[in-house]
Simulated scan of single mutants.
Amino acid sequence: MLTPEQMRRIEPYFPLSHGMPRVDVCRVLSGIALVIRNGLRWRDSPSDYGPDKTIDNRFIRWSRLGVFNRILAELAAQGGETDNLMIDATHLKVHRTAARLLKKGLYPGCIGRSRGGLTTKLQVVCDGKGRPRLLHLSEGQANDYKTAAAAIEDLPAAKSLLADRAYSSAAFRQALVERGITPCIPPHAKHRVQHSYDSVLYRQRHRIENMFARLKEARIHTSYDQCAHTFL
C-alpha cells in the first residue's frame, strides 16, 4: 500500500533494529494501514503482509514509542508556515470492549462520563487549510479550553487561532496573546466582557469541521476501543 517514495520519507522515524534483521517495515506498515482503514481484526489481515501477531505487536510498540506522533508532526511541519490555526473537538463513543480501561492502569484510557455514557474527546489543531497539526485525547467530560491549554506550548507559530464559543475563556485568550497569536473566538452572550473578533476570518472555521467529517467518513475514529496511545 505504501510506495518506495513514501517509505523514504518516514523510514528515519522508526527505531533501528538490534540483532536479527527486522521484518520488512513497509510490508508491516501496509498491513497496519489495511487493518485500521477497513476496521478488521488483526487475525483477518492477509498473509501477504506477514504474521498477524507481528503486525499487532509492531503497531503497539511503535505507538508506545511515539513513532506515529513524530511522523505526523514532522510531515505536517513540512507543509510550511501558516497564518491561521483552528482548534475544535469531537466526542467519541467508548466501545464496550474499552470500558475496562476506565480503571487506572499503566496506560491511561482517557475515558470519562458524558452524554449519557462513556466517552472520550479528540481535540485537533489544524492549519488554515484544514490539515491536522496536533491531536490530543482527554476524558469526555473535560472542558474544551482547559484541555486546549495543555497544548498551547506545542502550537506552531501563527497570526491567529479560530475557535468556537466553547474556547471563550479569559485565561485561554491571554495565553494565546502571550504567544503572539490573536484569538478569533466569538464571546458568550452572557460574558461581561464582549471581546471583538474578525467575523470574516471566522467563516473559514468550516474547514476543521470538514476535516472531522472526512475522518469519520473514512471510519478512522468512529468509536474509542483501545488504550489512549494506540488509539491516538
Rank of each mutant, 00 (worst) to 15 (best):
80 G>V: 09
164 D>E: 12
162 L>V: 03
83 D>M: 05
13 Y>D: 10
225 D>E: 15
113 R>Q: 12
222 T>P: 05
40 L>G: 10
35 V>M: 06
182 T>F: 00
93 K>A: 11
56 D>M: 13
68 F>T: 09
113 R>G: 10
44 D>H: 06
87 I>H: 02
13 Y>H: 14
17 S>C: 12
171 A>V: 06
180 G>A: 03
213 A>E: 05
12 P>E: 07
47 S>Y: 10
217 E>N: 14
69 N>Y: 01
120 T>D: 02
202 Y>W: 05
80 G>N: 10
26 C>G: 13
8 R>L: 12
185 I>K: 05
80 G>W: 10
55 I>P: 07
132 P>L: 03
15 P>I: 11
176 L>A: 04
116 G>W: 14
93 K>H: 08
169 S>Q: 01
151 A>R: 14
123 Q>V: 05
69 N>Q: 13
156 P>C: 08
17 S>G: 11
115 R>W: 13
191 H>D: 11
224 Y>H: 15
34 L>T: 00
116 G>F: 11
33 A>W: 10
207 R>Y: 03
198 D>H: 08
133 R>G: 07
166 A>P: 03
22 R>D: 06
161 L>Y: 02
172 F>R: 04
130 G>D: 04
219 R>W: 13
39 G>D: 12
6 Q>L: 08
81 E>V: 13
98 A>G: 07
98 A>M: 07
91 H>C: 04
35 V>S: 00
21 P>A: 07
94 V>F: 03
133 R>A: 06
57 N>H: 15
213 A>K: 05
199 S>I: 13
188 H>V: 01
33 A>R: 13
16 L>C: 11
92 L>M: 11
208 I>S: 12
189 A>R: 12
82 T>H: 03
100 R>Q: 10
88 D>A: 03
6 Q>W: 05
164 D>I: 12
127 D>S: 00
66 G>A: 06
48 D>R: 14
4 P>M: 10
182 T>H: 09
88 D>I: 03
107 Y>F: 09
228 A>L: 09
4 P>D: 09
221 H>V: 07
8 R>C: 08
133 R>W: 11
173 R>F: 04
103 K>C: 08
191 H>P: 00
6 Q>T: 04
87 I>M: 03
223 S>C: 13
218 A>G: 13
70 R>P: 01
119 T>G: 04
17 S>N: 10
43 R>N: 06
198 D>V: 11
138 S>G: 14
94 V>T: 07
152 I>R: 02
107 Y>K: 04
88 D>F: 02
152 I>G: 01
229 H>V: 14
106 L>G: 07
91 H>L: 15
170 A>Y: 02
125 V>W: 00
217 E>G: 15
200 V>R: 14
101 L>C: 06
179 R>K: 15
78 Q>L: 14
124 V>F: 01
228 A>F: 01
91 H>W: 06
7 M>R: 09
80 G>A: 08
167 Y>W: 10
89 A>V: 11
153 E>L: 09
79 G>P: 10
139 E>D: 08
227 C>I: 04
41 R>V: 09
167 Y>V: 05
181 I>R: 08
175 A>C: 05
175 A>F: 00
183 P>Q: 07
220 I>E: 05
86 M>H: 03
118 L>K: 14
65 L>K: 13
3 T>I: 05
10 I>E: 03
5 E>I: 14
100 R>Y: 10
159 K>F: 02
231 F>N: 01
48 D>K: 12
123 Q>A: 08
208 I>V: 14
122 L>S: 03
71 I>S: 00
